[in-house]
Computed example of a mutant assay.
Amino acid sequence: MNAAILARLAAAGLALPRPTVPAANYVPFTRAGALLFVAGQTPIRNGEPLYRGVVGEDVTVEEAQAAARACALNILAQVGIAVGDEPHRVRCLRLTGFVRCRDDFTHQARVMDGASDLMVLALGEDGRHARTSVGTNALPRGVPVEVEGLFELV
C-alpha cells in the first residue's frame, strides 16, 4: 500500500485492519487491468461485527456512519493486499453502500458519508468518487452497513 495513504490514516489515528476473509463462495477482490473491484465489506474486526442492528431503530445515524467508516477501512485493507508493494496510485471511482434500515428511514446518504469521508481522508483528491446509497431490510450477520468499492490503479 502507498506510504502516503498509510501516513494520512496514521495522522488521523487510524490504521488498516487485518483483511477479512470471505464468508462464502467469492473472492475479496478481482482485478481487470487497471480496475480493482472490492467485494462488499462489513464492519467486522477479528471476525466479529462492531455494530449490529437497524439504522433508525436501534442504531443511530452516527453509529451507522462509524460502521460505514469501518467498512471503508476494510475495503482499503483489501486494496492493500491487491496492490501489495506495487507503486500504484490508488483512485476510488465508486462506492456502493447498503444500509439496513427502517422502511421510513431516508438518510442513507448521510450514513454513507462515513465511508466517503474516510476515502477522501486516506486518498486525498483520489478519494473523491461516485456513489450509490441503498436502504435494505437485512445484511449479513445483522450488521447495519455494507460497502463495496471500485478503484483504478494508476
Score class of each variant (00 low, 15 high):
residue 1 M to R: 10
residue 2 N to W: 05
residue 3 A to F: 00
residue 6 L to Q: 15
residue 6 L to K: 14
residue 7 A to I: 01
residue 8 R to M: 06
residue 8 R to S: 12
residue 9 L to R: 12
residue 9 L to Q: 04
residue 9 L to M: 10
residue 10 A to H: 09
residue 11 A to R: 06
residue 13 G to K: 00
residue 14 L to I: 05
residue 15 A to G: 14
residue 16 L to P: 06
residue 21 V to K: 15
residue 21 V to F: 07
residue 23 A to C: 02
residue 25 N to G: 01
residue 27 V to I: 03
residue 27 V to S: 09
residue 28 P to G: 09
residue 28 P to M: 03
residue 30 T to H: 12
residue 31 R to H: 04
residue 33 G to V: 11
residue 33 G to K: 07
residue 34 A to N: 10
residue 35 L to I: 04
residue 36 L to N: 00
residue 39 A to N: 10
residue 41 Q to P: 09
residue 42 T to K: 05
residue 43 P to F: 08
residue 45 R to K: 15
residue 45 R to I: 03
residue 46 N to H: 13
residue 49 P to T: 03
residue 53 G to W: 02
residue 54 V to W: 14
residue 56 G to M: 13
residue 57 E to K: 10
residue 59 V to M: 13
residue 59 V to E: 09
residue 61 V to K: 07
residue 61 V to A: 11
residue 62 E to G: 09
residue 62 E to L: 14
residue 63 E to V: 08
residue 63 E to L: 11
residue 64 A to M: 02
residue 65 Q to L: 09
residue 65 Q to R: 15
residue 66 A to G: 06
residue 67 A to R: 04
residue 68 A to Q: 10
residue 68 A to T: 13
residue 69 R to N: 02
residue 69 R to E: 13
residue 70 A to L: 05
residue 70 A to I: 00
residue 70 A to Q: 09
residue 73 L to H: 04
residue 76 L to S: 01
residue 78 Q to K: 07
residue 78 Q to R: 05
residue 81 I to V: 15
residue 82 A to K: 08
residue 82 A to Q: 04
residue 82 A to T: 02
residue 83 V to S: 01
residue 87 P to K: 10
residue 87 P to M: 14
residue 89 R to I: 07
residue 89 R to D: 04
residue 90 V to P: 03
residue 90 V to F: 00
residue 91 R to W: 02
residue 91 R to M: 04
residue 92 C to H: 04
residue 92 C to T: 01
residue 92 C to V: 02
residue 93 L to C: 06
residue 94 R to M: 11
residue 94 R to N: 12
residue 96 T to K: 14
residue 99 V to D: 04
residue 99 V to Q: 09
residue 100 R to W: 12
residue 100 R to F: 07
residue 101 C to N: 13
residue 102 R to Y: 11
residue 104 D to K: 11
residue 104 D to L: 08
residue 105 F to H: 12
residue 107 H to F: 05
residue 108 Q to R: 14
residue 109 A to F: 02
residue 111 V to S: 07
residue 112 M to E: 11
residue 112 M to P: 13
residue 113 D to G: 00
residue 113 D to N: 15
residue 113 D to Y: 07
residue 114 G to L: 08
residue 115 A to D: 08
residue 116 S to I: 07
residue 117 D to C: 03
residue 117 D to A: 14
residue 117 D to H: 13
residue 119 M to Q: 02
residue 120 V to W: 12
residue 120 V to I: 15
residue 121 L to F: 06
residue 122 A to Y: 10
residue 122 A to T: 05
residue 123 L to S: 01
residue 124 G to E: 10
residue 128 R to K: 08
residue 130 A to W: 12
residue 131 R to C: 07
residue 134 V to E: 14
residue 135 G to M: 05
residue 136 T to R: 12
residue 140 P to I: 07
residue 140 P to A: 05
residue 141 R to C: 14
residue 142 G to E: 13
residue 143 V to H: 02
residue 143 V to W: 08
residue 144 P to I: 05
residue 144 P to C: 10
residue 145 V to I: 14
residue 147 V to E: 02
residue 148 E to T: 12
residue 148 E to G: 04
residue 148 E to M: 12
residue 149 G to M: 00
residue 149 G to I: 10
residue 149 G to L: 01
residue 150 L to Y: 08
residue 151 F to I: 01
residue 153 L to W: 13
residue 154 V to Y: 03
residue 154 V to K: 10
residue 154 V to W: 04
